[in-house]
Amino acid sequence: MNNMQQEFLEAGTLMLVGMVVVFAFLGLLILFVNLVLAKLAVRFPDPVAPSRAPSNKKNNKKADDGTASPAIVAAISGAVNRYRAQHGQSSASADNSLPQNKN
């Protein structure tokens, strides 16, 4: 019987200590969230504005690429055409030069 009493006493203290520690631990966690995380949230607001801006930039870049590409294509094709024309001439001249060299 005495043994039982002692066990009850132990269980009782365990209950008391346990609940106090659980509340203290989670209470500290509340402080942590309120003091640290809330400040971090103010200092580093990741939400709407900043996340939109880079995505817009990306979109702009993509849009730039999209609109620029025809112009670039035109420029490149123009350059290629001119190069081909020159190259054709130069190759023709080279063809001419070869026999010249032979001669």
Partner: peptide, 28 residues
């Protein structure tokens, strides 16, 4: 994180654990 007070509810519900400890000893 949006409502940290809810941690107190999570703490209170643990009373089930510690009260049962008592019950288990009583079952002896």
């Amino acid at each position: 994180i949006a409502n940290p007070k809810m941690l107190l509810l999570g703490a209170a519900a643990q009373f089930g654990i510690f009260a049962t400890l008592f019950g288990a000893i009583a079952l002896n």
